[in-house]
Design a protein around this nucleic acid. Sequence first.
DNA 1: GTAGGATTCAAACTAGCGTTTCAGAGCGCC
DNA 2: GGCGCTCTGAAACGCTAGTTTGAATCCTAC
Lengths: 216, 216
Amino acid sequence: MTDATRERILDVAEGLFAEHGLVNTSLRAITSLAAVNLAAVNYHFGSKDGLIREVFARRLVTLNRERVRRLDALADDAPVEDVLGAFIAPALELNTPADLGGQRFIRLLGRTYFEAAPELRAHIHGLYAEVFERAKVAFARALPELPALELYWRLHFMLGAVSYTMAGTDLMQIVAACELATQADGTQMTQRLIPFLAAGLRAPLPPGLAQRPAAA
Amino acid sequence: MTDATRERILDVAEGLFAEHGLVNTSLRAITSLAAVNLAAVNYHFGSKDGLIREVFARRLVTLNRERVRRLDALADDAPVEDVLGAFIAPALELNTPADLGGQRFIRLLGRTYFEAAPELRAHIHGLYAEVFERAKVAFARALPELPALELYWRLHFMLGAVSYTMAGTDLMQIVAACELATQADGTQMTQRLIPFLAAGLRAPLPPGLAQRPAAA
DNA sequence: GTAGGATTCAAACTAGCGTTTCAGAGCGCC
DNA sequence: GGCGCTCTGAAACGCTAGTTTGAATCCTAC
């Protein structure tokens, strides 16, 4: 048997973490909602940090494996749109009404980019290292005319837009008088993000800055 | 006398909040670093929440007044770049080596977009309402061909990129093998952000989505 | 059927948090 | 000088957090 208690704790924790944040979610809230004993967390995961790491690892490993697969499948002359798709789509497509768990996890992932404790950050970084390495190469190949420094910053901006979208933090609700925010699902979001980001990545170089030439 | 204790608490709190987040910063850490008594916070600000609100209000009021000023000064046919400049520059330009306080505040501001407790969120929203109202109008005027729904999402993406940049969360440090991240100052950041975001906002419409026509 | 490891349980422990209390120090003013 | 007010100080309160404990229970293997 696959230890129902473990799974129930992970599911509930994922949801509460996504909704209230990591530090604002107590083990007592998790265990009482999961209808398990308080001590079960420390028994199965060692500590709260252990639980958090497991919540991330459980989904992130398969998610990033899929990203690497799609990045590796790209043609040598793939346009930026395709590189963006390989990087973004696997994450956002978890956000479907069908998969409530995946939906919550995406929110959690977006939030954690920012909330992040120093050591948890390191753990997640480890899970991301391979994906980023491949993505960096793919973007550089798709944007050969862009100086390295400029590429660095533009990928930075891209990550911001993606993370923010995943976090679902609707600061925008003030802006939108109407109720436009019908929480579009992941594939719609991807279809909107890619043209926006591709255009940004391909934008003309900023005029004012002295461009350091790419390493000879 | 301008109450040195109050100011010292605000300065130290701003720095610690920016570095460790709101919930992970205790009043004891603040007061001991500021070399004031623990009770001083509750005396001067009523509560920790009161302190947090004051930390934000102190800088945000003047910052957003400046944004409104610049937005109002725009010509009717101002290009997106200028609208972006009016919205982004006042914030990022606080991030100069000269003003350490402003620099920390910008990081704090970026983080808080995400960390945000429900009620604090409301307070900050209140401080932002006017700026967003003006910005929304200005962007709509600069991008007349964009459907309302599409504009909504693109402004959402824009906010993500800006917030992430302000937060200084360098998930990217994995990507950049070299030490490119020489923490460019605010004006450089603005010069890089504007071409990227302007191109994104002006991007062709996503093909797959059935565009809801703008309200007749 | 029973021994023994794996799991659950209620309860307590320690630590840190925000907050409160109340005594007293500093100081201007009639 | 003494009243009144603002502010500071040390200590404690109540609460919640993560963690630990040791007995009770379940379940499998012989």
